[in-house]
Design a protein around this nucleic acid. Structure first.
Length: 490
RNA sequence: CGGGGUGUAGCGUAGCCCGGUAUCGCGCCACAUUUGGGAUGUGGAGGUCGUAGGUUCGAAUCCUGCCACCCCGACCA
């Protein structure tokens, strides 16, 4: 197990290894930056899936599944969309291999596809092609569908969890009769994401809208949640797009309204990915490893017995059996680590690395005294408490930990949120403590790009709660009506 | 694709300048003693030194080609 673990993202690989590793593909393979998510890492993703899926169902959505392969022609139907994804697509060109006569397996050139297939980088096109057949009348609307899937984006540079060639995500694709309804949906799902990030992941986020320059390819408006990592860099943690009628027009999806008029459908799409794992890790972890908020942790409590003899172990087992029953009644997930192949100190360190919020250590001494040692991951503190009422005690502790982790992240963000009024100040903060920088911007893509070129900072979003305020752009001095958030980002 | 760097055991490395068949740590296996914060001792297993060629009596070391990976940039959830 590695030491020197750190919460700085630049050095993440040491402890990311507990959760994910870079895929070890064949040496000459052109595939770069795929990841293997190890069982413990995947368990965390499964928790995210379960909680989000429940929220989606509660807001009226159903799950469905669409093909991995998308005919190339689908892409060319929406101009902005194809332009946005063209440079990062994996393309299937053949459907058969053959033996070349010398025992080598080669691509059979005779088996060339008439039309190439794109491995989906996102599913708007194939889904809207399908929706055409599903929608005729206003009675068919809205369609509220979500898909859990993998997608492929052939990035030039990859980074585990944050930007891998293949990643897991969910993508919601909805169709509505009116513009207002679609915008409402876009905003509703952004709220679902924000609520999830803050209440479950304990990661505070800024809700906002992207500038035209940062907008999703094919969207009229992109809403996002932006989180701040411990190294002062921002991370886009989720997006919700108002697609207008772009895809309906591109795929000719029309419906007959109540008034008997033929109209194009209004669309949204929204998604979060395994990138959330990266956000979680970089927002909370410390030098001892991962710190998981209790509401997300696959294992909330780990129990480590300390014993010398079989008699002692048997006595502890009896106590632990009872405790686990009580915890399970309270819906608290618990792991009894009674491996006899590792020593207690090793187990302590290992579960800390994995971020388990609460640890109970119980030994012969405790059994005599009627106590246990209760340790919390977030503050790295421990105390000896009575066995009496322990389950209730743990339940409260888990709540306290959830709140504490969120508060800590919130405090960090508050101290890395700076309002500036000049470009010099802007650069100084950016190169110093980093974080979000709130300032005036003249609203042009030109200025946005210049600032990015000079400082590497991008406009993360125009916060939804930005208030009207007269000001001047820090870069050009032109008038501005509200502040936007800049930051260096992943 | 541009600029820089690195390839030695499962992982991390020393050795390279100055050529003599590979060092150390972690991990792994066995036994013993241990077990309330990542145990200790003894013994053991594990190597195409990225790859192909060249120079040489002899190459991890010098030379050339190739390959791979990492970092920075363009791209991006």
């Amino acid at each position: 197990m590695s030491k020197g673990i750190t919460s700085r993202a630049e050095d993440y690989s040491q402890w990311y290894n507990e959760l994910v590793i870079k895929a070890d593909l064949a040496e000459n393979s052109a595939v770069r930056g795929c990841m293997v998510i190890k069982p413990y890492g995947y368990a965390i993703w499964e928790r995210m899936q379960a909680i989000l899926d429940k929220r989606f169902k509660e807001t009226g959505h159903s799950n469905a599944y669409f093909p991995l392969f998308i005919p190339k022609s689908f892409f060319s139907k929406e101009a902005a969309h194809v332009e946005g994804f063209a440079t990062e697509c994996a393309v299937v060109t053949h459907y058969r291999l053959k033996n070349d006569g010398t025992g080598k397996i080669v691509v059979d050139e005779d088996a060339k596809l008439e039309e190439e297939l794109i491995v989906r980088p996102t599913s708007e096109t194939i889904i809207w092609n399908t929706y055409r057949g599903w929608i005729e009348s206003y009675r068919d609307l809205p369609i509220l569908v979500n898909q859990w899937a993998n997608v492929v984006r052939w990035e030039m540079r990859t980074r585990l969890f944050l930007r891998t060639a293949e990643f897991l995500w969910q993508e919601g694709h909805t169709a509505h009769a009116t513009r207002e309804e679609a915008i409402e949906e876009t905003e509703r799902m952004l709220d679902v994401y924000a609520e999830f990030a803050e209440n479950i992941l304990a990661v505070p986020v800024v809700r906002g809208r992207k500038t035209e320059n940062e907008r999703f390819a094919g969207a009229l408006d992109t809403y996002c949640i932006e989180a701040l990592m411990q190294d002062g860099k921002a991370l886009q943690a989720g997006t919700s797009h108002f697609l207008g009628q772009n895809f309906a027009k591109a795929f000719d999806v029309k419906f007959t309204s109540k008034e008997g008029k033929l109209e194009h459908v209004w669309a949204t799409s929204w998604g979060v990915s395994t990138r959330l794992m990266g956000a979680l890790i970089m927002a909370h972890s410390d030098d001892q490893g991962l710190v998981l908020p209790p509401k997300l942790a696959p294992i909330q409590v780990v129990i480590v017995p300390i014993f010398k003899t079989e008699e002692e172990k048997a006595q502890i087992d009896t106590f632990v059996d009872q405790l686990m029953r009580e915890l399970k009644i309270k819906d608290i997930s618990v792991k009894y680590d009674d491996r006899d192949t590792q020593r207690p100190g090793f187990k302590f360190a290992e579960w800390e690395l994995k971020g388990v919020p609460v640890r109970v250590a119980v030994g012969a001494r405790d059994m005599q005294n009627g106590t246990v040692e209760l340790a919390r991951r977030d503050t790295q503190t421990k105390e000896t408490v009575a066995q009496e009422g322990l389950a209730g005690n743990i339940e409260q502790l888990l709540q306290a930990i959830q709140e504490n982790i969120y508060q800590k992240a919130l405090d960090f963000r508050a101290s890395h949120f700076t309002e500036v009024n000049s470009y010099d100040e802007f650069k100084e903060v950016l190169e110093g403590k980093g974080g979000f920088i709130s300032c005036h911007w003249d609203g042009t893509t030109e200025t946005e790009k210049r600032v990015k070129e000079e400082t590497k900072a991008t406009i993360r979003c125009i916060p939804l709660d930005a208030k009207e305020e007269e000001g001047i752009c820090i870069f050009t001095g032109k008038p501005s009506r509200r502040r936007v958030l800049f930051a260096k980002a992943y």
